[in-house]
């Protein structure tokens, strides 16, 4: 029975991903190679980490537009501390993660305590984080050389880097928190009817703030993997990252209205987006065709989710009824 639930929950997204893999596999001679998959595995971690947080934020009916800029700020700070201030990598990493958490705290406090819509607050922090990234980097690209290589070079056994394994662990932990802890269940409940949850005597204020802080911290971790993959960072690095994150989470069936979401499906959403990126680049699609196709896939995936939630089960029930 649990297998069945597992399949119905995650099966459809997984199938879409497999379809993409086979589609690109048939279009390109080199797509179905360990190198391609290992490349995608190397690109996955930053987006996955941010999507874990974004999923939680969407579940409580919020949104975080600042993740791209905060990622750029944390990555720039991280590289600056290593390259210019010559801090140890570990200490610089902690500083970068805390910086992300700080932005998350600002987002949370303004959204929850002062009741400014999260869309507005995070639009503000998007600008602030970007501006601060520019100021600390003086618009320069900061490189860190080989120092972060261990994080991203593929492990001999599984063929994927440490960063990927860390990301997968976060996905498992995130899904556990969401579906197996009281905290996670309360977040879902808050997303459906916050007033009712409060009147049931459940603390809601700090729970909601915590979601923003966790997203900030995760963005800080993502920044480290991001800088590791690029061997450096600049203030422009996070450009458009927030939109990729929201797209991946929404493809994964998380509702923008709150109250519904799944970390594992967000992970699959990230795989779909990045596979699409890699695949379209490998078949050498025209720049603008890439945009058109990516947009179409986002809409199709969400449409499929809508059908899965309402129309398809209704149809199935009707067919069963008819057979009776």
């Amino acid at each position: 029975m649990n297998t069945k639930r597992f399949l119905t929950d995650y099966g459809p997204m997984f199938v879409i991903w497999l379809i993409l893999i086979f589609l690109f596999g048939s279009l390109s001679d080199h797509f179905l190679s360990s190198r391609t998959l290992s490349t995608i595995a190397g690109q996955v971690p930053p987006l996955v980490l941010v999507c874990c947080g974004m999923t939680f934020i969407l579940i409580v009916a919020g949104i975080d537009l600042s993740v791209g800029s905060v990622l750029a700020f944390c990555a720039t700070l991280f590289c600056l501390l290593i390259a210019r201030a010559e801090w140890a990598v570990g200490v610089a990493a902690i500083a970068a993660i805390l910086a992300g958490g700080f932005f998350g705290l600002i987002n949370g406090l303004f959204t929850v305590l002062l009741r400014v819509p999260s869309f507005i607050v995070t639009l503000g922090t998007l600008k602030i984080a970007f501006g601060m990234a520019m100021l600390i980097s003086r618009s320069e690209t900061l490189t860190v050389g080989m120092k972060l290589e261990p994080l991203i070079s593929p492990l001999p056994g599984p063929g994927v880097p440490v960063s990927f394994i860390v990301a997968v662990l976060f996905v498992i932990a995130g899904q556990f928190v969401l579906s197996k802890t009281i905290y996670g269940r309360h977040l879902i409940a808050i997303g459906t009817n916050e007033s009712a949850v409060r009147l049931a005597g459940v603390e809601t204020t700090w729970k909601k703030i915590s979601v923003f802080v966790v997203t900030g911290l995760l963005t800080g971790v993502a920044a480290i993997f991001f800088a590791a993959r690029l061997g450096g960072a600049n203030a422009d690095s996070g450009n458009g990252f927030e939109l990729s994150a929201i797209a991946a989470v929404v493809i994964g069936g998380t509702s923008l209205m709150g109250g519904r979401g799944s970390i594992v499906n967000s992970f699959l959403g990230v795989l779909i987006i990045l596979t699409l990126d890699a695949g379209l680049a490998q078949v050498g699609a025209d720049e603008w065709v890439k945009h058109v196709i990516t947009g179409a896939v986002i809409i199709l995936a969400v449409l499929l989710d809508v059908l899965r939630g309402g129309v398809l089960p209704g149809l199935a029930a009707r067919i069963r009824n008819y057979k009776k």
Binding site: I188, N193, V197
Partner: peptide, 9 residues
């Protein structure tokens, strides 16, 4: 509906 129920749950 407004203050008691978590309707979709």
């Amino acid at each position: 509906k407004l203050d008691g129920l978590l309707l979709p749950l």
